[in-house]
Design a protein around this nucleic acid. Sequence first.
DNA 1: TGGGGTTAT
DNA 2: ATAACCC
Length: 467
Amino acid sequence: MEQRRAGPAEEAGGDEAAEAGEAGCSPAAAAPEEPGGLGPPARVIVHVDLDCFYAQVEMISNPELKGKPLGVQQKYLVVTCNYEARKLGVKKLMNVRDAKEKCPQLVLVNGEDLTRYREMSYKVTELLEEFSPVVERLGFDENFVDLTEMVEKRLQQLQSDELSALTVSGHVYNNQYINLHDILHIRLLVGSQIAAEMREAMYNQLGLTGCAGVASNKLLAKLVSGVFKPNQQTVLLPESSQVLIQSLNHVKEMPGIGYKTAKRLEALGISSVYDLQTFSSKILEKELGISVAQRIQKLSFGEDNSPVTPSGPPQSFSEEDSFKKCSSEVEVKNKIEELLASLLNRVCQDGRKPHTIRLIIRRYSSENHCSRESRQCPIPSHIIQKLGTGNCDVITPMVDILMKLFRNMVNVKMPFHLTLLSVCLCNLKALNTSKKGTIDYYLTPSLSTTSRSGKRSFKMKDSHMED
DNA sequence: TGGGGTTAT
DNA sequence: ATAACCC
């Protein structure tokens, strides 16, 4: 149904396609270095975005929920909902009361425990890694995959008569004509076919539906993946990239420009993508710093050279709980114990060992709503060693450490009012922390010189809490 | 606004 | 340790 046949070469480039198509691209070209032979190699990137992920996981857990308007609730918020609920006016991050008012039949399930979502999320990433190992996670429900190599391999397998029959899978953004003589088009079409295979595999093996966007970089792939929504895919051909980015109504919609930067841009009179494109680079650099300024101004042109960075296993494990009020040490200790118990189970399953522990709090305040404070310290090595086994004997000493961190942040002799507690285990190392006794010990600079010489190693720069 | 994550400074 | 970004 989404299938569209590639247009004949003569028709290609009816609008703006004339410019980029020429640069000497024979279909047999091998090395991905097309744009005239200079500049960065052209990539093929796919962004995979699951449809209302938490709601999908809940409907798999309990099939009776299918077909009903479903919301996933955390505290007093509906954090996400299925499409039945959306049709009836429920929005993401809507207040539970507003949602129930809009949609009295709304079924709510509690989604504060992320365990099943996290597990399913990694199954998706692992499935995508089977296609190509270069997979970058973005949250629990989005992944980028660099398809450049896979596409090249497939093209080398193609016979010339198959090439003329190449078709796109899914939508073509802006309904742009496909030029089968344009190697960039060809490669993106192959990318669209791989994207379709990925979505098929996700559905067949995991029962999950989602969208995909195929383009020449992460920014464009992400933007184009959301064009046709649920369970569809779209490919962006280079000649339509300006149409895509100009379709954004505000710079805040550009991934990479967040709340703070958008506010600062607005203060400069910049609100549209065009405003940002045409704003003085010099002034922008002075206002935002050269790094942010250059990066976001490139984004405004649809340029994004950031690589797809393989996420691999997580860098940290954290659990948090928010509440209206927590104002005594006993309450704090109880909450911390709960958070830590779950974390120890997770870290145990992972196999690696955290070498740093952090406590994060949010204090009650009328204005400054989002700000958090944290304290961290190294985990004593005798505790690290016991981590894999029965964690009963580590929970008490770790809670003691966390309470010290807490008292370092909060003067418990004075009244306090917290609205969030979070514990984070990070600085994860693969079991053998010290390579002492191995040949690596003498070959690893940070171990064999810096650490032993008594100088501060860059690997050991945790803040020191007296224990 | 929840309950997570990441990287840069 | 914080601040920014992402979901």
